[in-house]
Protein backbone atom coordinates (compact mmCIF):
# COMPACT_ATOMS: atom_id res chain seq x y z
CA UNK A 1 0.00 0.00 0.00
CA UNK A 2 1.42 3.41 -0.99
CA UNK A 3 1.63 5.84 1.91
CA UNK A 4 -0.44 8.99 1.85
CA UNK A 5 -0.98 12.04 3.98
CA UNK A 6 -4.50 12.49 5.30
CA UNK A 7 -6.53 14.35 7.89
CA UNK A 8 -8.15 11.91 10.32
CA UNK A 9 -10.77 12.71 12.93
CA UNK A 10 -10.07 11.73 16.52
CA UNK A 11 -12.85 9.39 17.67
CA UNK A 12 -11.67 8.22 21.09
CA UNK A 13 -8.84 8.97 23.47
CA UNK A 14 -8.84 6.39 26.31
CA UNK A 15 -6.41 6.21 29.18
CA UNK A 16 -5.66 2.48 29.54
CA UNK A 17 -2.78 2.62 32.02
CA UNK A 18 -0.50 4.93 33.91
CA UNK A 19 0.39 7.58 31.25
CA UNK A 20 -0.68 5.09 28.56
CA UNK A 21 -3.37 6.03 26.04
CA UNK A 22 -5.28 4.32 23.26
CA UNK A 23 -6.15 6.69 20.45
CA UNK A 24 -8.70 5.82 17.79
CA UNK A 25 -8.89 7.80 14.55
CA UNK A 26 -11.49 7.63 11.80
CA UNK A 27 -10.35 6.58 8.35
CA UNK A 28 -8.39 3.92 6.55
CA UNK A 29 -4.61 3.59 6.54
CA UNK A 30 -4.48 0.02 5.17
CA UNK A 31 -1.36 -0.92 7.14
CA UNK A 32 0.25 -4.31 7.52
CA UNK A 33 1.14 -5.42 11.04
CA UNK A 34 4.41 -3.80 12.14
CA UNK A 35 4.05 -0.76 9.89
CA UNK A 36 3.83 2.71 11.39
CA UNK A 37 2.36 6.15 10.84
CA UNK A 38 3.72 9.66 11.37
CA UNK A 39 1.39 11.87 13.38
CA UNK A 40 1.28 15.64 13.81
CA UNK A 41 0.71 15.85 17.56
CA UNK A 42 -0.32 19.50 17.53
CA UNK A 43 -1.39 21.94 14.81
CA UNK A 44 1.70 24.14 15.31
CA UNK A 45 5.39 24.29 14.38
CA UNK A 46 6.59 23.56 17.91
CA UNK A 47 7.12 20.71 18.55
CA UNK A 48 8.36 20.62 14.99
CA UNK A 49 8.66 16.97 14.04
CA UNK A 50 5.96 14.39 13.56
CA UNK A 51 5.86 11.47 15.96
CA UNK A 52 6.14 7.92 14.64
CA UNK A 53 3.70 5.39 16.15
CA UNK A 54 3.28 1.76 15.25
CA UNK A 55 -0.17 0.67 14.19
CA UNK A 56 -1.80 -0.91 17.24
CA UNK A 57 -4.82 -1.97 15.26
CA UNK A 58 -6.59 -0.93 12.10
CA UNK A 59 -9.73 -1.66 10.14
CA UNK A 60 -11.23 -0.29 6.92
CA UNK A 61 -12.57 2.68 8.89
CA UNK A 62 -10.38 3.11 11.95
CA UNK A 63 -6.75 3.41 12.98
CA UNK A 64 -5.78 2.72 16.61
CA UNK A 65 -2.54 3.78 18.25
CA UNK A 66 -1.24 2.85 21.69
CA UNK A 67 1.24 5.27 23.23
CA UNK A 68 2.80 6.34 26.49
CA UNK A 69 3.46 9.94 27.45
CA UNK A 70 7.24 10.13 27.11
CA UNK A 71 7.78 13.83 26.42
CA UNK A 72 6.17 17.04 25.32
CA UNK A 73 4.95 15.67 21.97
CA UNK A 74 3.05 12.74 23.41
CA UNK A 75 1.76 14.95 26.26
CA UNK A 76 0.24 17.33 23.69
CA UNK A 77 -1.17 14.36 21.78
CA UNK A 78 -2.86 13.05 24.95
CA UNK A 79 -4.72 16.38 25.24
CA UNK A 80 -6.28 16.20 21.77
CA UNK A 81 -10.05 15.79 21.98
CA UNK A 82 -12.65 13.78 20.04
CA UNK A 83 -13.75 15.63 16.91
CA UNK A 84 -10.34 17.22 16.34
CA UNK A 85 -8.44 16.49 13.13
CA UNK A 86 -4.94 15.01 13.12
CA UNK A 87 -2.59 14.83 10.14
CA UNK A 88 -1.44 11.26 9.62
CA UNK A 89 1.02 9.94 7.03
CA UNK A 90 1.19 6.24 6.40
CA UNK A 91 1.41 3.33 6.22
CA UNK A 92 5.20 3.52 6.44
CA UNK A 93 8.03 1.01 6.76
CA UNK A 94 8.23 -2.74 6.40
CA UNK A 95 5.89 -4.77 8.56
CA UNK A 96 5.96 -8.34 9.85
CA UNK A 97 5.83 -11.13 7.27
CA UNK A 98 3.44 -14.03 7.66
CA UNK A 99 6.25 -16.50 8.33
CA UNK A 100 6.55 -20.10 7.15
CA UNK A 101 5.83 -22.10 10.31
CA UNK A 102 2.33 -23.00 11.49
CA UNK A 103 3.16 -21.85 14.97
CA UNK A 104 4.00 -18.27 16.01
CA UNK A 105 5.66 -17.20 19.24
CA UNK A 106 5.20 -13.49 19.91
CA UNK A 107 7.12 -11.65 22.64
CA UNK A 108 6.23 -8.16 23.88
CA UNK A 109 8.22 -5.97 26.26
CA UNK A 110 6.39 -3.01 27.80
CA UNK A 111 5.18 -0.53 25.17
CA UNK A 112 6.66 -2.89 22.59
CA UNK A 113 3.28 -4.60 22.84
CA UNK A 114 1.76 -1.77 20.79
CA UNK A 115 2.30 -3.20 17.27
CA UNK A 116 1.72 -6.80 18.36
CA UNK A 117 -2.05 -6.76 18.87
CA UNK A 118 -2.58 -6.23 15.15
CA UNK A 119 0.07 -8.88 14.48
CA UNK A 120 -1.82 -11.39 16.66
CA UNK A 121 -5.02 -10.66 14.72
CA UNK A 122 -3.12 -11.15 11.45
CA UNK A 123 -1.48 -14.42 12.57
CA UNK A 124 -4.78 -15.73 13.87
CA UNK A 125 -6.44 -14.92 10.52
CA UNK A 126 -3.61 -16.80 8.78
CA UNK A 127 -4.55 -19.87 10.83
CA UNK A 128 -1.43 -19.94 12.99
CA UNK A 129 -1.19 -21.42 16.44
CA UNK A 130 -0.12 -18.38 18.51
CA UNK A 131 1.72 -18.20 21.84
CA UNK A 132 1.96 -14.67 23.29
CA UNK A 133 4.40 -13.57 25.99
CA UNK A 134 3.86 -10.18 27.57
CA UNK A 135 6.51 -8.74 29.87
CA UNK A 136 6.89 -5.48 31.73
CA UNK A 137 8.80 -4.08 34.67
CA UNK A 138 5.71 -3.90 36.89
CA UNK A 139 1.99 -4.69 36.67
CA UNK A 140 1.33 -1.08 35.59
CA UNK A 141 3.24 -1.77 32.36
CA UNK A 142 0.86 -4.54 31.28
CA UNK A 143 -2.13 -2.92 29.60
CA UNK A 144 -5.10 -4.25 27.63
CA UNK A 145 -4.25 -7.80 28.68
CA UNK A 146 -7.74 -9.08 27.82
CA UNK A 147 -7.36 -7.91 24.21
CA UNK A 148 -4.08 -9.73 23.78
CA UNK A 149 -5.28 -12.84 25.63
CA UNK A 150 -8.34 -13.12 23.39
CA UNK A 151 -6.16 -13.34 20.28
CA UNK A 152 -3.65 -15.92 21.55
CA UNK A 153 -3.88 -19.68 22.00
CA UNK A 154 -1.38 -19.53 24.84
CA UNK A 155 -0.88 -16.45 26.97
CA UNK A 156 1.90 -15.75 29.48
CA UNK A 157 2.46 -12.52 31.39
CA UNK A 158 5.57 -11.69 33.41
CA UNK A 159 6.84 -8.76 35.43
CA UNK A 160 10.34 -8.12 36.71
CA UNK A 161 9.05 -7.40 40.23
CA UNK A 162 6.46 -10.17 40.22
CA UNK A 163 3.57 -7.73 40.72
CA UNK A 164 1.64 -9.52 37.95
CA UNK A 165 2.10 -12.83 36.15
CA UNK A 166 5.33 -14.75 36.50
CA UNK A 167 8.26 -13.08 38.21
CA UNK A 168 11.29 -12.39 36.03
CA UNK A 169 12.26 -11.28 32.54
CA UNK A 170 9.66 -12.43 30.02
CA UNK A 171 12.34 -14.02 27.85
CA UNK A 172 13.07 -16.55 30.64
CA UNK A 173 9.70 -18.19 30.00
CA UNK A 174 9.72 -18.44 26.20
CA UNK A 175 11.94 -21.50 25.77
CA UNK A 176 9.27 -24.25 26.32
CA UNK A 177 7.08 -22.69 23.63
CA UNK A 178 9.88 -23.30 21.13
CA UNK A 179 10.69 -26.88 22.07
CA UNK A 180 7.80 -28.57 20.26
CA UNK A 181 6.56 -27.76 16.76
CA UNK A 182 8.66 -25.48 14.55
CA UNK A 183 7.74 -21.89 15.24
CA UNK A 184 8.48 -18.39 13.95
CA UNK A 185 9.42 -15.76 16.52
CA UNK A 186 8.19 -12.17 16.54
CA UNK A 187 9.16 -9.53 19.08
CA UNK A 188 9.03 -5.86 19.95
CA UNK A 189 10.48 -4.27 23.08
CA UNK A 190 13.69 -2.91 24.59
CA UNK A 191 16.96 -3.79 22.86
CA UNK A 192 18.26 -6.21 25.57
CA UNK A 193 14.98 -8.14 25.31
CA UNK A 194 15.26 -8.29 21.53
CA UNK A 195 18.81 -9.58 21.86
CA UNK A 196 17.60 -12.34 24.18
CA UNK A 197 14.78 -13.25 21.78
CA UNK A 198 17.24 -13.39 18.88
CA UNK A 199 19.41 -15.78 20.93
CA UNK A 200 16.41 -18.02 21.64
CA UNK A 201 15.56 -18.08 17.94
CA UNK A 202 19.11 -18.95 16.98
CA UNK A 203 19.16 -21.82 19.46
CA UNK A 204 15.83 -23.16 18.16
CA UNK A 205 16.72 -22.57 14.53
CA UNK A 206 13.61 -20.42 14.20
CA UNK A 207 13.00 -17.48 11.87
CA UNK A 208 12.85 -14.35 13.97
CA UNK A 209 11.43 -10.89 13.20
CA UNK A 210 12.14 -7.92 15.44
CA UNK A 211 10.49 -4.50 15.44
CA UNK A 212 12.89 -1.68 16.35
CA UNK A 213 12.40 1.94 17.18
CA UNK A 214 14.53 5.04 16.71
CA UNK A 215 14.26 8.80 16.79
CA UNK A 216 13.07 9.78 13.33
CA UNK A 217 12.59 12.85 11.26
CA UNK A 218 11.23 12.06 7.79
CA UNK A 219 9.96 8.51 8.30
CA UNK A 220 10.30 7.80 4.57
CA UNK A 221 14.00 7.03 4.13
CA UNK A 222 15.16 10.44 2.93
CA UNK A 223 16.93 12.07 5.86
CA UNK A 224 19.05 9.12 7.10
CA UNK A 225 18.52 10.30 10.67
CA UNK A 226 17.26 7.02 12.18
CA UNK A 227 20.03 4.63 11.15
CA UNK A 228 21.23 1.72 13.25
CA UNK A 229 24.36 -0.36 12.67
CA UNK A 230 23.50 -3.67 11.03
CA UNK A 231 25.31 -6.91 11.90
CA UNK A 232 27.34 -6.54 8.66
CA UNK A 233 28.58 -3.12 9.80
CA UNK A 234 26.43 -1.19 7.31
CA UNK A 235 23.68 1.27 8.21
CA UNK A 236 20.01 0.32 8.24
CA UNK A 237 17.28 2.94 8.18
CA UNK A 238 14.79 1.96 10.86
CA UNK A 239 12.03 3.80 8.96
CA UNK A 240 12.28 2.10 5.57
CA UNK A 241 14.65 -0.87 5.89
CA UNK A 242 12.61 -1.66 9.05
CA UNK A 243 11.11 -1.08 11.52
CA UNK A 244 10.79 -4.89 11.31
CA UNK A 245 14.11 -6.63 10.67
CA UNK A 246 15.17 -10.25 10.53
CA UNK A 247 17.07 -10.90 13.76
CA UNK A 248 20.30 -11.84 11.97
CA UNK A 249 20.29 -8.48 10.16
CA UNK A 250 20.59 -6.75 13.53
CA UNK A 251 22.42 -9.24 15.74
CA UNK A 252 24.18 -11.51 13.25
CA UNK A 253 23.91 -15.24 12.75
Amino acid sequence: MMPKKQEMMLLRQEQVGEDIFRLTLQGEVAALPGQFVQVGVAPALDPYLLRPFSVHDCSPDTLTLLYRIAGRGTLLLSRRQPGEMLTVTGPLGRGFPAGKADRAVVVAGGMGAAPLLYLLRFLRAAGKDVAFFYGARTAAGLVLQDSYRSLADEYTAATEDGSAGKKGLVTQFVHPALSGKKADLYACGPLPMLRAVAALAKEAGADCYLSLEARMACGVGACLGCVIRGADGGWRRVCTDGPVFRAEEVFGR
Binding site: Y48, L49, R215, C223, L224, G225, C226, V227, I228
Partner: peptide, 14 residues
Protein backbone atom coordinates in the same frame (compact mmCIF):
# COMPACT_ATOMS: atom_id res chain seq x y z
CA UNK B 1 28.33 9.62 7.65
CA UNK B 2 28.30 10.10 11.41
CA UNK B 3 27.34 7.55 14.08
CA UNK B 4 23.85 7.83 15.61
CA UNK B 5 22.27 9.67 17.43
CA UNK B 6 22.04 11.92 14.37
CA UNK B 7 18.90 13.91 15.17
CA UNK B 8 17.60 16.09 17.97
CA UNK B 9 14.42 18.11 18.07
CA UNK B 10 14.78 21.70 19.28
CA UNK B 11 12.26 24.53 19.73
CA UNK B 12 10.52 25.01 16.36
CA UNK B 13 13.31 23.15 14.64
CA UNK B 14 15.76 20.32 14.67
Amino acid sequence: GNPPVRLAETPAGM
